[in-house]
């Protein structure tokens, strides 16, 4: 896209989108590190992930201030308007993703000795496609690609299926040994958090699509699966 006649306007938009990417990068490492902390039972790393969420909040509120100022001072039109509105939505989706990853890290610190490795692995396995979704949608954002955004949007069913199977797997561990119930409940929440992160990624995909194309990805096209 060619530059604005007023170059400061272009710089402001670039800064906003750089901040969105920064938030995306932080959210992504929070997912990876929270599950790494879980699999290695690394409490120090888990604490560190919780702290990282503060950084995300700070960037989000700064992005919000930038957006208000852009709208008031520049009166954006066309693609600029869609980009700014999408940035507002995407930053709050990323902030939610950060909250959910933080919650996983918090729960990782509360697990007792009754957890077995299979339980930890079930969550870690599920986190892989979820962080891949986030990575893909951030790629779609960075490259302004509606095709990539649509792919992410269509892949959410995989995560839902994954969640359903982790849910059933977890239940069998709890039935086997009721002493695992407390830790198991935490882990069911972790799985649910990962599933929610997947949903936020599809929301981001919708905003990326809107930003680039100017149309809405219709909810009708995607077959909805049963949810737990």
């Amino acid at each position: 896209m060619s530059d604005h006649i007023v170059s400061a306007y272009s710089e402001e938009l670039e800064r906003l989108s750089a901040d969105i990417m920064k938030m995306g990068g932080i959210a992504e490492t929070m997912i990876v590190d929270s599950t790494r902390a879980l699999s290695a039972n690394d409490l120090e790393l888990a604490r560190e992930v919780v702290l990282r969420d503060l950084l995300l909040d700070v960037i989000e509120s700064d992005a919000e201030r930038q957006i208000v100022s852009l709208i008031a001072r520049r009166q954006p039109m066309g693609h600029d308007l869609r980009m700014i509105l999408s940035a507002m939505k995407i930053s709050s989706e990323l902030e939610r993703i950060g909250d959910l990853a933080k919650n996983i890290a918090k729960r990782a610190q509360r697990l007792d000795d009754n957890v077995n490795d299979e339980m930890r692995n079930a969550i870690v396995r599920m986190s892989k496609p979820v962080s891949r979704q986030l990575n893909n949608v951030l790629n779609a954002y960075a490259s302004a690609s509606p095709e990539k955004a649509k792919l992410v949007w269509e892949s959410d069913d995989d995560i839902d299926n994954h969640y359903n199977s982790v849910f059933r797997e977890m239940l069998t561990y709890l039935v086997e040994d009721p002493r695992r119930i407390t830790a198991g409940a935490h882990m069911l929440f972790m799985a649910k958090n990962l599933e929610r992160i997947g949903d936020h990624c599809t929301n981001i995909a919708e905003f990326v699509y809107y930003q680039v194309v100017g149309d809405y990805l219709s909810e009708l096209e995607r077959p909805k699966q049963d949810q737990v």
Partner: peptide, 10 residues
């Protein structure tokens, strides 16, 4: 049109 309304006209 996009270039004009967004202030990009060269």
């Amino acid at each position: 049109t996009e270039d004009y309304i967004t202030g990009r006209f060269g």
